[in-house]
Write a protein that binds this DNA or RNA. Structure first.
Lengths: 197, 197, 197, 197
DNA sequence: TATGAATGAGGGTTCATTCAT
DNA sequence: CATGAATGAACCCTCATTCAT
């Protein structure tokens, strides 16, 4: 029962946060939307910070899992990049076309990283895993003779990771008109430069 | 006189915003720090939003100018990347070692882009110029025979831009331990892949 | 204008504090009773503590002044004690017969002494002055041959001060039925023991 | 078992009250510290008032017993006063050097007297007993020829009681620098004035 | 007897904004 | 142009108490 209420509050809060932006939602709104009383809220959470931080954990875990589940290491690099492209396409669509405030939530999460040990380690883990999967994928492609032998898998994976993140940021921020096309170009550029002729 | 007062307020506000984070500074603080009265403030600004958005303009313009001033197009790509590396190094140091809240200001700016026409166009312009300079630089390097002829300057410039931005974000967020070294690897990776053997 | 509002708030608050007891009065009540808005209150006071502490200062100053004004040093000890007796009689009546909570205010003041430099020094000053006046009075009585020469004025003044305070406390606390009569006995006891036969 | 739980709650509460001051301790704290549940608490006490008033009873009873146990009536007045002096010394030390809030508890008790029949009668009883013991002691000293025959034991006992209480208050409130020495002077002053030459 | 989730009135405080002077 | 007292909605949070289990 207790667990249910807490989860309920988190769910409601996350929805509000994504709709209006984490900083624009007051505790009163969360409480009202959750149909509970003030006291009930404070029975489950120490204070507002605990709620927001918990929500960010959930949000981040959700994002991480989506990536972790991707079977990048078992695919060809071409297919892997295609899949990431598609994933980002959907995310960007959600951000730009939806009415929600997913982007502010994302920025808040980034901001929280510097003040929240747990989120920091989650984030590092996420990027580490993402890079590792790419790296593994590249190694196999080298073995298969698709990627040149002199290519460093680690460094290439790092490059892909950062430019994907940078592209995601600039797209979310609405700076690129046709984000998806841009990412395709970027991936092509990298892909061409490491494959055997 | 009027202009001076306004500029004074903006300067004071920007400093506070960078110190404590845009959302953590109240109008009262700005007014107090600027040594003015409430009425004086409202004489120069319609409301708080006008102040914050003006401040973000200034902040962004400042950042832009720093990039625009870089004579990237007249340098070798190697030198250009070195210079950007150094610039980022300083910025990251400021963010991670300083007591200020530069990063939150940056995130707020990114967030504002989606709600503020003017900032959006400034941002787009900034990234366009940055990319253009890199592109010009690359073209010249191709002519000089340093970069291969089959390399597309536009796309390569796009790649450099996005991975620089992505790397900046991840470094600011404290995700990379040795950010500077990481950026060097990334640039090396790109540079090697486009230069003639 | 500013001074007036602040004084007004203090007056209203003091009245409420004396009626209901300092700990039983909320800021909302003070604000409501003063006819002002929350903002107005916080314009004049940093927080509730500043209000209560200011009120206690006023309260204490008021009490002190009543004592300081007494021309004890120019009277015979007999008359001086009579006068103090009468003063206490009135105070006790106010505490016991009135509807107010003067006593709790007094206790709160006593409690504040230990946490408030200013009140501490006010209090020490008050008791010092009271003792000094009594001491001076006794010295003159010795010169007049009314009080014995071997009597120490300082120590006797200390005795009178402490037993007056002790009696005041026990009377306020409702422990003595006929407080006034008790104080008379106490004073008589002291008086007899120091006068010449 | 029930009795034990109730006593346990009271013990825990008293400790908290003396540490932090009666008004600064919430029921939640008491419940948490006692290791019980909310329901369990309300099984034993009607409401918070019942707890505080019960605690004050205990506190007061404790103080009373300490005095009642003193074999004042069987001692010489000199020794009796010495003993009281020592008792007060310890109490004052506890108040001024300790980190606890014994003094606030004491003031709260005094305040409660006026609103709580039971505490009122306990208090009256306490002071009555204290005075009686002193009075008996003095009577015996008169018989022994140590105190003059014209001294009224009742009135002298009253004087000692009130000045002890007054001194205790002023010392607790931190108004006297060297409280112990002051009390010695006061007692000396009284003692000298009633003994035979 | 005992649990602890839920209640909700009320607490103190902040803050952007207005407006008479 | 400038002042700063006043506004009041909204904020986060505390707490004694109730009640279904």
């Amino acid at each position: 029962m207790e667990k249910d209420t807490k989860t309920h509050i988190i769910t409601v809060a996350l929805q509000l946060f994504e709709e209006k932006g984490l900083n624009k939602v007051s505790l009163n709104e969360v409480i009202k939307a959750s149909g509970l009383s003030k006291g009930a809220f404070y029975h489950h959470f120490k204070d507002k910070k605990e709620l927001t931080s918990t929500c960010i954990h959930y949000y981040w875990e959700d994002m991480s899992n989506n990536v972790v589940k991707l079977p990048i290491q078992d695919m060809s690099l071409k297919d892997a990049l295609s899949m990431i492209l598609q994933q980002f396409d959907e995310a960007i669509k959600r951000i730009n076309e939806g009415n929600d405030n997913f982007f502010e939530m994302y920025l808040n999460m980034l901001y929280s990283i510097r003040n929240d040990e747990k989120i920091l380690s989650m984030s590092r883990n996420y990027f580490k895993k993402f890079k590792q999967k790419l790296s593994d994928c590249i190694k196999k492609e080298i073995e298969r003779g698709i990627i040149r032998e002199d290519v460093d898998p680690e460094n290439t994976a790092l490059l892909i990771t950062t430019c994907t993140e940078g592209h995601g940021l600039l797209s979310s921020a609405n700076i690129y008109d046709s984000p998806n096309q841009k990412l395709e170009i970027i991936y092509d550029q990298i892909y061409k430069s490491i494959t055997t002729k």
